[in-house]
Structures are given as structure tokens and as C-alpha cells.
Design a binder for these strands. Structure first.
Lengths: 343, 343
DNA sequence: CAGCGTATTGCAATCGATTGCAATATAGCC
DNA sequence: GGCTATATTGCAATCGATTGCAATACGCTG
């Protein structure tokens, strides 16, 4: 039996219909055992019949909890366009699912919102109980401020060990080292790094790149590090440009993201450079498409599932008075065609 | 001068500090001209000094407006995994930006949330003033219910002309027709359709596919329509499977999404089928990666920017008492290597 | 039968901001 | 000087649910 959605039922209406006080109705609806079982049953039945839903706003005001988490995606001020990296969607999906599972709503910020002062906007205004910040970008001081202000938040990014706030992220340095060591094992001698090291995560990947080279007795050449945005287009253009200078002498490329790698691959193939024979290529992220380009892309897989769950778990723990700790997630090298040379 | 964020400033605190009543403080903060200019100035100054932010919850309760829109992403019950299609991220980004521009917050639902009754959850509980539903999926009756319940909402999907609610979406039929006509013009005689026609949008694309064939005097063969999920993996597997049956006689594939097309391309290349010479391939969406695979992918570009803006505009108009109308957005064929045969 | 513990229920305050209406003050006018 | 129009400000109710504490009723014990 579906009852016409009258104006809008309130707790007071339900109480009246059930012939009890608002307080009793409130407790009954939440199955408070202090209320007589029959009364509870009756109130719940009436509420169900009338499709009553607790007004979330009123509840939030009274309980001082919004049960909402704001997720803020940072990205380059330069690339003003909307979010495009598929990797983001991956982790966002996990976070969304996990928050839902824990009974929280997810408020998503956009590029433009990011202009605002999100502490004020989301936290001081009580829109959210906590924040998840994705991507530290180029050393954002706004994140530091959050920390100083005592706002519960966690960051997806790169833990450098010096932050005063919890950072969850992949072991970027280790991942890069795996990737580059793999390239070296495939016989590469001169490997370029495509990625913008002003981003902390990318900086860590660059360090891993250097680690691997040095371990092999190769001195890293700074000019082989090319700042590149997180897009296939940037990877393509950067590689094309590099063709005129260094590319002839390169035999490997480590791209800081799969999107960049795919752009690079396009440029290489256009110039009839054989991948992986002439030049081996490795990306980072393991987005869904990586397995399906040709040649398929060797890459470093980030465990987004564990990451998303951990972000949520740490934040909620912090909100509930506990501590949130930084954590490095292990990564895994996925070997595919773009780097595997037949021996 | 940053003042230590005391417990939490309320309007009442500001009023006391300014030596005025709460009502005056409230009006002053919103620059109500009925309040003396000097008083307004003073109150605003004090509020700024103390980093006061209006409590959004309290305001919502009083004004009965949440200034929040819930965005619900529907997808297959089968593929229980999180959202993966890059196209979603595109349109989501546009919607997020546009909502922010209009002063609205965006609540994002996840796969799991979708299990719930979202009318109750988001609307009846006053969490959101309206809903944007992305993807009608397989004729979801929950959408019909929303409509019956008088909830302000708009849908991104396929307008069939029979819905009783506003649907914004690309002209899928026209787009498919463009794509298939193009394939025919390239000399294709036998074209497969990869996509799950239980989704309304895909159904429309299938109709456009049939339109184009019939216009060319070709009778569509039902067995060339292969239900395929929205993933590269599904496209890959479906194409591989088709290899054993129909593929030898095919010379064209129209995939219902770029992700599917990329999976298909992978399978084709693995079997040494030359794209586009032996078999021409066209996708749908024009995701960022389409230009950067090899061969680059011919596809039908959806105008996500116009779509996102329109969704928001129509919904807000509806919320503000106006009407929201369905609308078909024009699409554009982007010709790239995967279908262009040199003559 | 008095007294007290337990089970239920209701009263009323509270969360923080907004707003209709009343109150006060000031100015202008004849 | 008396009176009205206008400019400012404040009072108090309101939005809807939650919760500490008081109130009531009932049963049981000695």
C-alpha cells in the first residue's frame, strides 16, 4: 500500500498518529530498548506506512554530526579543465562505496570549488565531518593549514615522512624502482622520465627512478627528466618534442602515469619506433585501458581498493577520536608487451 | 591576522561581539540593505576576523533548502564492480563544476548506495533538493517512481519520447547512423554491433545502426548484434569469441562505447587483422584516450560539456518552480585512423 | 499495606540560523 | 510643538529531531 506522499511527514506527525510523544516516537524509530516493544513496533509500522524518513538536516543540527565526508580532488592550476585521469575515477569509486558502507555520504568537490577555502567551506560550515584530499599537487599549503586547524582529514598522495598529517598512498619510490629496474633488465641503457616532479607523488617516482639507475651504476641525467602533465596529450607532445633532441639515443621511457605512457606510445609508433624492441615503455597506475592498448602497457599497479578503504578507515577513526596514521601501500609491477623483449 | 579557531563561532557569538541582536547580525552578514551600512560593515568585519562561517545545517533546516544535488550513477547489477568508464568521469566533472558555479553542493552516490531507495534517502530525508540520474540502465522502474512522486530530477540517458520525466542525452540514433554510414562509405559490407541493447541508450544506437544499413539497402542481421558490457575487457572477449564464428566474414565493427572498441581493437590486432584495411572500427563517446591508441579510434563525440550544463540548468529550473524539458544533443563523427581507408 | 525498584513515557531545552512583525528612534513637515 | 513617515533594530517563533531528567504507573517484597 503506497500512500500518497503528503506534504512531508515529520516526526511530530508520526507521533500524533501513533498517539505518543515526539520523544517516544524518536526513540521508537531508532529501536531504543527503553521503549516498550509493542510501542516501538507500532510507531515503526506507522512510519513505514507513511514513508516517513528522518529529516537529515534536523538530525545533523541536533547531533552535531553531518555524517558526510567531503572529497576534494586537487589538480593543476594550469590545466583548468575538469578531471580526466581514469585513475581518479578508480579510487573515487572505491571511496564512495566504502563511505556508503560505513553510513556516510560523500560530497564531491570540483576544480572550481577548489579555489575556495575548503576548510571553511566544508568543515567550519559543518557541511562535512571530515575531508579526504586526493593529490597533494605541487606542495599545497592549504593542506598544511588544514592540519594546523585541527580538521579531521586524510590525504591520498605521497608520504615524505615530514608531514604533520596522515597520508595514505602507494609506495611510489619502490614502484618506480621496480619499473626502471625492469627496464634495465630488458637491456635499456638510457631511460627518460616523463612526469612533473613538482607533484610530490611524481617526485617520489623520480627518486625511485634514480635509485634504480644508481643501483645499476648509471648516473641519472637531469635532462632526461621531462615535466609532463597528467594527460595522454601531454605525453604525446612531450615525446614528439623529445624526438628532435634526445629520442634517437633513448631506449627506454618510464612515464609517471599510464595516460602519459599512452600518449608517448602514440608518438613513438607514429615515428615508426618499435616498442619494445627499439624502445621499451613502462607506465604507472594500471588503469583499465592499459591491458588493451597495443602493445599492451607494462605498468606499476596501485592498489586502489586497499587505498580507498584505508583512507576511509583512517579518517573515520580520526573522527571518532582515534589517531590516523600515514601508510605506504605496496605496489606491483605488471609486465606486458610494451617492455618485454623476447630474448 | 589569524585568530585561533575557538571552539566554533556561532551567529550568536558574532552578534554579542558586535553588540547587536542575532537577527541584525544575520541580516548584516547577508548584506541586507535594511541594516545600516556601518552596522553591516562592522558585523562583517568581526565575522571575518573570527573566521565565522554560517552553519550550513542550521540554515538548511530553517530555509528548507539543502542547496545540494545528489548525483546517482546507475550501472549494471551484474558488473558489481565500481564505475570504470572514463566517459562517466567526463560528464561528472562537468556537472560538478556547473553545480559549484550555481552555488550547489554535489552528493555522489555509489554502486552500493544505488541499492537503496534513493528517493527516500536523498529527497524525502531532505539531503538533496533534487537528483541527477546518470544512465537509465535497463529500464529502471525506480526512475519511473521518482517521477510519480514529484521529485525534481533529470536523467542523462536516451529520450525515447515516451517518458514522463526530463531526459537529456546525445542523439544516439543519429550518432550511430553517422558512424555506420561512414563505415559503409569506407566500403564495409558486413558490420557487427557490439553493445548491450537492454540499455536504452545502446538500444537507440542499435536503431541508428539499422537505419544506416537499411538506407544502404542492407538487411540488418540480428546475429551481428552482440551484447557487450561497457568495458574494454568485454569488448575484447566478445571480439575474440566472434572470431571463431562470424569474424572472418566481417569487415566492420561499430562498438557502442570507446572502451568496448579498444578491447575489440586489441583482439583484432592480436589476430593480425589489419585495422582499418581488413576491418574498420568505430566507437562512441570520444574519451580522451581514443585519439591516442594505435590506430587512433574513429568515434562519435558526445558533447559532455553542453550535456552537463544542460542537466544542471534544467534541474535548477525545475527546482525553482519552472519546467524541465527533455533535450537531444547533437553529436559529431570524429574520423580517425581506425576507419579511414586510403583510397 | 507501605515502600521502593523498574519499566515506560513525556516535558522541555537544545542545536544555529532566519524572518514576520513589533518597537524604537530619528527626521521632516506644517 | 505635535504628528507622521522612514530608517534601524530586536523579540520571539520556527525549522525537525534528539535527549537529560522528571513523572507516572505497575509490581513486588517484607
Amino acid at each position: 500500500m503506497t500512500i500518497k506522499p503528503a506534504k512531508s511527514m515529520t516526526l511530530s506527525d508520526i507521533a500524533r498518529l501513533a498517539g505518543v510523544s515526539e520523544s517516544t516516537a524518536s526513540r521508537a524509530l531508532r529501536d531504543n530498548p527503553v521503549i516498550n516493544a509493542q510501542t516501538r513496533q507500532k510507531v515503526q509500522q506507522i512510519a513505514a506506512d507513511h514513508q516517513f524518513k528522518v529529516n537529515a538536516t534536523a538530525r545533523s543540527l541536533r547531533t552535531q554530526k553531518s555524517h558526510t565526508i567531503a572529497v576534494i580532488i586537487l589538480f593543476d592550476a594550469k590545466t583548468q579543465q575538469a578531471i580526466t585521469d581514469p585513475f581518479l575515477l578508480d579510487i573515487l569509486g572505491v571511496i564512495a562505496d566504502e563511505l556508503t558502507r560505513q553510513g556516510y555520504d560523500m560530497l564531491l568537490s570540483s576544480s572550481k570549488t577548489t579555489d575556495k577555502d575548503w576548510r571553511s567551506y566544508y568543515f567550519d560550515s559543518k557541511r562535512a565531518d571530515g575531508l579526504i584530499v586526493i593529490g597533494q599537487g605541487e606542495h599545497d599549503e592549504r593542506v598544511e593549514q588544514l592540519s594546523a586547524a585541527g580538521v579531521p582529514f586524510v590525504v591520498w598522495g605521497a608520504a615524505t615522512g615530514t608531514e604533520r598529517f596522515p597520508v595514505i598512498g602507494s609506495d611510489n619510490r619502490q614502484g618506480a624502482q621496480l619499473a626502471v629496474t625492469h627496464l634495465l633488465a630488458q637491456g635499456c641503457k638510457r631511460i627518460a622520465f616523463l612526469g612533473d616532479i613538482r607533484h610530490t607523488e611524481i617526485e617520489m617516482r623520480y627518486l625511485g627512478y634514480q635509485d634504480a639507475l644508481q643501483a645499476a651504476g648509471i648516473k641519472p641525467e637531469p635532462k632526461l627528466q621531462l615535466n609532463t602533465d597528467f594527460t595522454a596529450q601531454a605525453g604525446y607532445l612531450q615525446t614528439q618534442q623529445a624526438l628532435f633532441t634526445e629520442l634517437a639515443t633513448l631506449d627506454g621511457i618510464f612515464a609517471a602515469s599510464d595516460a602519459i605512457a599512452m600518449g608517448a606510445m602514440k608518438a613513438l609508433l607514429e615515428h615508426n619506433i618499435k616498442v619494445p624492441q627499439q624502445l621499451a615503455l613502462v607506465g604507472f597506475d594500471d588503469i583499465a585501458m592499459s591491458a588493451y592498448c597495443t602493445p599492451s602497457l607494462t605498468t606499476v599497479k596501485q592498489d586502489t581498493h586497499a587505498g580507498g578503504k584505508l583512507l576511509v578507515a583512517q579518517l573515520l577513526s580520526r573522527i571518532n577520536g582515534g589517531k590516523a596514521a600515514s601508510q605506504l601501500l605496496p605496489v606491483k609491477l605488471i609486465e606486458r608487451q610494451s617492455s618485454l623483449r623476447k630474448h
